[in-house]
């Protein structure tokens, strides 16, 4: 047997492999060193990515927290003519405007978006595929374009800036985001559940209402809250259409104030006191946005736990 093997001509592949193994063994120490260095660099890059986050949060607390008082959060801003002598007043109406605009935009967008999501998850016709592509592209479009849209179709016909125009812009912004998230959530429901419902003789509307929507609820709620959070921080479309307001106003047909817009306006203000207060406004805005994003995490985690 061994004779037979030694008689065989040398196998070029085996020889080559031996050379490679020898070379690999010789370089393993150097390669390991380089590799570890590279891996450390990857982790370092990740830590570098967190520096801006840390810096932003630090800045918000360092410069913003001192302006946050109950008075600041609950009163109206100072008259522009009196700012030089007096305190700059509060942001109560901006908080109110933000909540109204974001809330009403959500009330308009959520039902539409859920039905679009349901349609996209149930249908795979050519029209549905086309709509799906459009919805996905819409989620990536710059929000300022919706400001132009709301300006042309709400501000121009009404001949006035209004909270309503902001609501229109934000709701069109929110629909694709919620529709996409809820489509994924609806698709994530096991098809056996749907088929079981249909096999029991339920209509597909009944199956959607009784099976699909409840089962997909955690994902849907996450998507809704995240899109509310995202819309709340949007400045660009709001900037073009809602105007400005120094008073309380519950009527979206009038001009309104809002936190992101106020942050933007204060940051470029001629009064140093307003420029400094921009951080207080920003902190209030970030707190509200974070509340929604963390809320979405909490709700979905909680609902998932309850399922088990």
């Amino acid at each position: 047997m061994t004779d037979l093997l030694t008689q065989l001509p040398p196998d070029p592949i085996l020889e080559r492999r031996a050379i490679i193994h020898a070379r690999a063994a010789k370089t393993i120490r150097r390669r390991t060193w380089i590799s570890n260095f590279f891996l450390a660099a990857l982790v370092a890059a990740f830590l570098i990515a967190l520096i801006p986050l840390g810096s932003v949060i630090f800045a918000l607390i360092d410069r913003g927290l001192s302006s946050i008082t109950w008075n600041f959060l609950s009163t109206l801003p100072q008259q522009p003519s009196l700012i030089a002598q007096n305190s700059i007043g509060g942001i109560g109406n901006a908080i109110e405007g933000t909540v109204i605009i974001d809330g009403l935009a959500g009330i308009i967008a959520i039902p539409i978006a859920l039905l679009v999501g349901l349609y996209l998850s149930e249908s795979s016709s050519r029209i549905a595929n086309f709509l799906r592509a459009i919805v996905e592209i819409m989620t990536g479009l710059p929000s300022i374009l919706l400001g132009v849209f709301a300006y042309e179709y709400v501000v121009v016909p009404m001949k006035a800036f209004s909270g309503l125009a902001g609501i229109v812009a934000l709701s069109v912004l929110m629909v694709p985001v919620i529709a996409k998230a809820s489509e994924l959530a609806f698709r994530g429901v096991p098809s056996t559940l749907r088929e079981a419902g249909l096999a029991l003789g339920a209509r597909s509307s009944r199956v959607s209402r009784g099976v699909i929507i409840p089962a997909a609820m955690p994902g849907v709620i996450t998507g809704v809250l995240l899109s509310l959070a995202r819309a709340m921080g949007e400045t660009a479309p709001i900037l073009l259409v809602i105007g400005a307001s120094g008073t309380w106003g519950w009527n979206p047909m009038h001009q309104m104030s809002s936190l992101p817009l106020l942050t933007y306006n204060y940051s470029g203000s001629q009064y140093p006191s307003q420029r400094a207060a921009a951080w207080g406004v920003a902190l209030a805005l970030v707190a509200m946005v974070m509340l929604l994003s963390l809320g979405s995490r909490f709700v979905s985690a909680r609902m998932r736990k309850e399922r088990r």
Partner: peptide, 16 residues
């Protein structure tokens, strides 16, 4: 933490 980076509104980055 990385997702938190996305949750910060654009205007806050501008201010920063």
């Amino acid at each position: 933490l990385i997702e938190l980076l996305a949750a910060v509104p654009s205007v806050v980055y501008g201010l920063w």
